[in-house]
Design a protein around this nucleic acid. Structure first.
Lengths: 236, 236
DNA sequence: ACGCAAACTTGCGTGCACGCACATTTCCTG
DNA sequence: CAGGAAATGTGCGTGCACGCAAGTTTGCGT
């Protein structure tokens, strides 16, 4: 009946990783569990009965909390549904960048990390995506979720660049987030756009429409010189 | 009683600029007027009685439209208030870039255009800013509004670069928008932030806290190499 | 000048986001 | 281990965002 049943055994849930991180505490584990329960409930219900047939009340009930509590975790229904797909991608990208092979070009490392995390998509996530693109609100929330990479990525880039005082790392990370969003926009669009880019130049046919990895690489490529320059600044 | 009173004389409102642009049409002028009336009403009321004492109903009434119509123009109350300050900045920045002196470095032109448009702020806008920063919701809406530069800027950059098929212009424009947002974030913060950037490196004291132009230049600087590379691609 | 088609406005209804105040739980310290 | 400080969950109330289905205005072709 209660979502938190799985963490009831108080005694030895975590055996060996206390040494690395200070004990997470009951509170934080509960919070994490509640958040995940809400995510899963939102996505499951949306896939079962269609996105428009799911009310906040249903999600909260399925997760075993009050509707008001649901709202303490997610600012919108779309955010809850989408986060079931996008959660942790940020952390995994940041981790992949942090674990780079010492001498590698930062631009390449970031690009590969992004491509990797957006390519290795499970069956469940793929099905969820098909659902997401059917509703504009969900599509927008999905695209907005890319902004979530910004902060963790800025942290690791700042470390790589040994740069903790300037805007460089933050701007580069934000640029990556924006590029990913643009690549996804292009990928999700079949055709039929009008004045997107060419406002008064010749005709502006945009959107090459290739595979997702290609789109991501193409969108990230223009940022490479900025990464190279930043890296050069660190080790001349 | 009606906001559109100023355009009542149907006969000769526009004398000499028909040659340059196709006649705007009554419809579009009315729309523009309504939007502007809503903006002004929102800001004026917010400054008169404080941001929290203004309801959508009040704004709509002051602009002479129904509350439902207000909602066809702005998706949130914050957006309406903030847009009174940020409106047209996008267009002016884009215009300034489009009118660049033939051989100038694109990165410099964009930087100067941005700095110029964020520096020459009138007395009224300054007062509005003081109001905006007092409410988190307004502050966020103000920062989000920087994303509005993206599309017009992408258009002019694409023209400068003679590039209408790739993501380059769009990514650069989005990078600029993100950098401006970050600069504004840093400028609006006095101090007191915690783990913004240095997640596990040493202590991460960020935010140099200088003047706005300095912040903008500092945030845009890391993107210059990307602009240079893109320009080099166009004219080798 | 007429009239149709498309765009815009508006009233209504529904579900939602969120502030506030209070009950409950977790954490920490003596 | 007691007890208080701090964080979290919850009910309630308010204003809001937005879909829908008329009613109204604008634009355009004939």
């Amino acid at each position: 009946m209660c979502v938190h049943a799985s963490l009831r055994p108080r005694i030895p849930v975590w055996n060996a990783d206390i040494v690395t991180t200070p004990p997470p505490g009951l509170r934080e584990r509960k919070k994490k569990a509640t958040r995940e329960a809400l995510r899963e409930a939102a996505l499951r219900l949306a896939m079962e009965r269609g996105p428009d047939q799911v009310r906040v009340e249903d999600i909260a009930e399925a997760a075993g909390v009050s509707p008001r509590t649901y709202n303490n975790y997610f600012a919108s229904r779309e955010q809850a549904i989408v986060s079931a797909v996008t959660a942790d991608r940020e952390a995994r990208i940041a981790a992949a960048v942090a674990a780079r092979p010492a001498g590698a070009r930062l631009a390449d490392v970031v690009t590969e990390a992004v491509v990797e995390q957006y390519t290795n998509t499970g069956e469940r996530e793929h099905a969820a995506l098909l659902l997401i693109i059917t509703r504009t609100a969900l599509r927008d929330a999905f695209l907005d979720a890319t902004a979530g990479i910004e902060h963790p990525l800025a942290a690791v880039i700042a470390e790589c660049l040994d740069d903790a005082g300037t805007y460089t790392a933050r701007v580069l990370a934000a640029g990556v987030a924006a590029a990913v969003r643009i690549a996804l926009e292009g990928w999700l669009q079949p055709a039929g756009n009008e004045g997107a880019a060419g406002s008064f130049g010749g005709g502006g046919l945009v959107v090459p429409s290739g595979s997702l990895p290609d789109q991501l690489r193409a969108a990230l490529a223009p940022l490479s010189p900025a990464f190279d320059a930043a890296e050069r600044r660190t080790r001349p």
